[in-house]
Simulated scan of single mutants.
Amino acid sequence: MIGSVQRQIARGMGQVRQTFLGVVARGGSKMLQLTGLADEVLDETELVQQVGFSSYIPEGCRVVVIPLQGKTSRSIVIATDGAPIVIHVLEGETCIYDQFGHAVWLKEDGTHIKGGDLFVDDGNLYVTNGDVIDQKSSMQEMRDTYSSHKHGNSPTPDKPM
């Protein structure tokens, strides 16, 4: 009797797809195409990400796939790993980064921003190629104005900026 019940349970469990690892065949930020076990292809698999965070998952990344209600056709991706660029953090650190090498790294000694230009839209601060720009002008334009300014017949500043 117990053996019969165990066989029925095993048969039923055999029809329920368990969580598995897949590989991204076509990247995206909302839907992915995956290859799974035995080279099966899963089209339009939903990528579930944390609220406030969105990331494009490149081809070749490993993903954790959960078949909802045990059905492969209703699978979602909940975690990713193995992108070409990976940043290793130390205890207590957090890093948000992309596959272009840009990073916002929260470290014990402060926030480090790496790569490219820095933009702060609402505060209107732009740092491009080492030049700081605000609502009025760039720092270099202010230096040029200061260094060449005069008051009446006085000479220009003896120490240019």
Results as ranks from 00 to 15, higher is better:
1 M>R: 13
2 I>T: 02
10 A>R: 11
12 G>T: 13
15 Q>N: 09
15 Q>W: 05
18 Q>D: 01
19 T>P: 03
19 T>L: 06
21 L>T: 09
22 G>M: 03
23 V>G: 01
23 V>P: 02
24 V>I: 04
25 A>D: 03
27 G>V: 07
27 G>D: 07
29 S>C: 09
29 S>N: 15
31 M>E: 10
33 Q>R: 10
33 Q>E: 13
33 Q>W: 03
33 Q>K: 05
38 A>T: 06
39 D>R: 03
40 E>G: 03
42 L>M: 13
42 L>K: 01
42 L>D: 01
44 E>N: 15
52 G>K: 13
53 F>I: 10
54 S>Q: 15
55 S>G: 05
58 P>V: 11
62 R>I: 01
67 P>I: 11
71 K>C: 05
73 S>Y: 01
74 R>H: 12
75 S>G: 06
75 S>R: 02
76 I>W: 05
79 A>K: 05
80 T>Q: 02
85 I>S: 04
85 I>Y: 05
87 I>P: 00
91 E>R: 09
91 E>C: 00
92 G>Q: 11
92 G>H: 06
93 E>Y: 08
94 T>Y: 04
94 T>V: 12
95 C>S: 14
109 D>N: 11
110 G>N: 13
112 H>Y: 15
114 K>A: 05
118 L>I: 14
119 F>K: 14
121 D>N: 06
121 D>F: 07
123 G>F: 09
123 G>I: 00
126 Y>H: 13
128 T>C: 15
132 V>H: 06
136 K>H: 08
136 K>E: 10
138 S>A: 09
146 Y>T: 00
151 H>F: 06
153 N>G: 08
154 S>T: 15
155 P>K: 15
156 T>M: 15
161 M>L: 15
161 M>T: 12
